[in-house]
Design a protein around this nucleic acid. Structure first.
Lengths: 240, 240
DNA sequence: ATCCTCAATAATGTCGACAATCCGGGCTGT
DNA sequence: ACAGCCCGGATTGTCGACATTATTGAGGAT
């Protein structure tokens, strides 16, 4: 009865707090976003007490988040030595990208087989916007459309297993992605490749979708190799 | 010095305990093995207190293990509702198998490109043993050789990223695997397919390895579909 | 009889405390 | 001067305690 625990004020950790969201999952998402956004230097130590304050969550929640992120490959944990943000080497980035390519091919194939008309409508929408960005020379707008296009394919494929996997892979190699669109003329080719994938899906032709996605990601991989080769030099536009 | 804490007996939780191993990782491995081995009914509730006693680990360790296994897809956790062993539906099993096929194709390709002579030696060893098992009609021996063959390919491919992924996928769908070898004549075909993969790797022909692995896993997938179609009926040999 | 309410129970989520461990810096002995 | 040792600070790992939440079952009102 009315055991309104007065003993320990469960006073909100901080005044403004979304009531509906849980603490643990929040800590996980926040930390994940922070890592993906590159707000930590690679190999930086993640001290639980600090994160606890910064994320405004108990150490327990931080701990759970670190365990998840470890399993996810975004941080490494050594016994009694804490957690660090994981540094993915160049070789690893290539491996990850290869795996991602294999999965995206599968997803493109399945998307072509199973895409609903609403899936196709949304894809078309993105393609239209991409064309606009290209016409306006808006390279960064284009870059932001890119992941949306791929995500739509994942949902169209209706294969959540593969979708989750590709998502985590992408988050691991995201740091390398910013270099991929700097090459002159890359945007135009990319647009054409995306259009090919799209039309294959519209035509419900799995074979063609697979091939188009293969070509596209082969191109991306080639770019990545090039970017890694040019490492150390500051990334810069080569004005055409 | 010699702060040999007597206050709280850290006496081994149970008499026989490997000193070098840590508790947490042990709990994880044990629970994982138990789930994979099918020692739980699908959808069975995993009560932390019970596991704590059974696994002989603190509740904290159990908790961490559950978080990991959740991320790995072997259990599901609902907030304030605990964890259950995850039941993978038939559809999901098919999806998983499709993803696995895509990854194994990649691995076969890379194995053909990069296999060292010692890798090849070990693979040959397994093939020889497989032939023996087939000749003796030892179907279960053959079944146990199967995963070893594939694992050797993963190591030969030298792509730990893909290897880990395939490993977790396999653990998720392991429950469905026992049905795959029951079909009459399956063993012989399987052996031939494995031999084809092997010779492609020996010849360092990535394209052929990819194709052979594709054919092999297409066959496996077909078997899985058949097995799922025949569900409910008790699995039984059809004597030829 | 059926549905609603509400307490008892069981399990999870979270926190604080403390031990175990690692790391860096100073001290000592040769 | 230099190597090795040892200690103190900092950080992680683990445990127990307790609040919170879902669930179950009994009892009462309609």
């Amino acid at each position: 009865m009315a055991r309104t625990k007065v003993g320990r004020e469960r006073v909100a950790r901080k005044p403004g707090r979304k009531g509906a969201s849980e603490v643990g999952v929040d800590a996980y998402r926040l930390l994940r976003q922070a890592i993906i956004a590159g707000r930590f230097v690679p190999n930086e130590r993640l001290v639980e007490a600090n994160l606890s304050k910064v994320l405004d969550a108990g150490r327990t929640a931080v701990r759970a988040a670190l365990v998840r992120l470890d399993q996810e490959g975004l941080v490494t944990r050594e016994h009694n030595r804490g957690a660090r943000v994981r540094l993915v080497s160049d070789d690893e980035a290539l491996q990850i990208e290869e795996v991602r390519a294999a999965l995206e091919r599968l997803l493109a194939r399945q998307a072509a087989a199973k895409a609903s008309s609403s899936d196709i409508r949304e894809l078309r929408q993105v393609i239209v916007e991409m064309r606009k960005c290209f016409a306006n020379g808006d390279a960064i707008g284009y870059s932001e459309l890119n992941p949306r296009f791929h995500q739509l394919i994942w949902t169209a494929a209706k294969n959540p297993t593969a979708g989750r996997l590709v998502g985590t892979l992408k988050s691991q190699s995201l740091r390398f992605q910013y270099q991929t669109m700097l090459r002159p003329g890359r945007t135009e080719r990319s647009l054409r490749e995306h259009e090919l994938i799209f039309s294959a899906i519209v035509a419900h032709d799995p074979e063609a979708a697979d091939g188009a996605m293969r070509d596209h990601l082969e191109e991306v991989l080639e770019n990545l190799r090039w970017a890694i080769g040019n490492k150390g030099r500051p990334p810069q536009w080569l004005p055409d």
